[in-house]
């Protein structure tokens, strides 16, 4: 691409600086350049005069109709059952019975629990350590679907000072996609990930599967 062509592209985009504008004006002294500029201006004018083709009025509804349900069917049915309006008939005896149930429930809650299952066991997570070797990097962050792909939230520490950045996260069972963000700009796929998935831009997101619902340690 010649300098004139480069400036012409900038001129058409309205991106030239005052100095570049002057340089471009000087190049237009040549009749050949002037003709080229006019040709391109006319082509742009022709293209931008084209009217947009509008989709049908049912376009959005049609797209929504083609989407699969993300909720599972039984859950959805339960949800609809819970929220469906219905007529409830009552009398004093029913109200008294309900009141009695409530009193019993409150009393039962105030008594010491006999259950052998502790709350600790119910909220078991797996501790997962994410590690990236990035010698020379100033800072490394972890972003994934577990934190809405926020790039400024989970910082990795270089404990050894030799460019090995790591962080340990408590994760509930499930499959998570993640990437490292080096020096706020470069997205890096974990080279040691268990699996990968296309991100739609030609790169790959790393995947981690957290399966065992017991306290333990994983290492990427």
């Amino acid at each position: 691409m010649t300098r004139f062509e480069e400036l012409l592209e900038g001129k058409l985009a309205g991106e030239l600086s005052p100095d570049e504008n002057q340089e471009f004006a000087a190049l237009l002294v040549l009749a050949e350049n002037r003709r080229a500029f006019e040709r391109h201006q006319q082509t742009v004018a022709l293209l931008t005069s084209v009217e947009r083709q509008v989709p049908s009025s049912s376009f959005t509804e049609d797209v929504l109709a083609r989407l699969p349900d993300r909720k599972s069917r039984p859950l959805e049915k339960l949800w609809e059952f819970l929220w469906a309006p219905r007529v409830v008939r009552w009398n004093v005896a029913t109200a008294l019975a309900l009141g009695l149930v409530l009193v019993v429930a409150v009393l039962a809650r105030t008594l010491p629990s006999q259950s052998p299952v502790s709350s600790e066991m119910r909220s078991v997570v797996t501790l997962f350590r994410f590690t990236l070797d990035a010698p020379g990097a100033q800072q490394v962050f972890l972003a994934g679907d577990f934190n809405g792909w926020r790039t400024d939230e989970i910082s990795l520490a270089d404990a050894t000072g030799r460019g090995r950045f790591s962080v340990t996260l408590p994760l509930k069972p499930g499959r998570y996609a993640y990437m490292f963000v080096v020096d706020e700009a470069t997205w890096v796929t974990d080279p040691r990930a268990e699996a990968y998935r296309d991100d739609g831009f030609g790169n790959k997101n790393a995947l981690v599967d957290v399966e065992a619902p017991t306290v333990g340690n994983g290492d990427t």
Binding site: P55, V63, L67, P68, A143, A177, D199, G200
Partner: peptide
């Protein structure tokens, strides 16, 4: 065009913003 929107929806988990 509808296909593209459906495909984008199915891949939303991989959209990093």
């Amino acid at each position: 065009a509808q296909d593209a929107f459906v495909k984008a929806y199915l891949s939303l988990r991989d959209f990093r913003g």
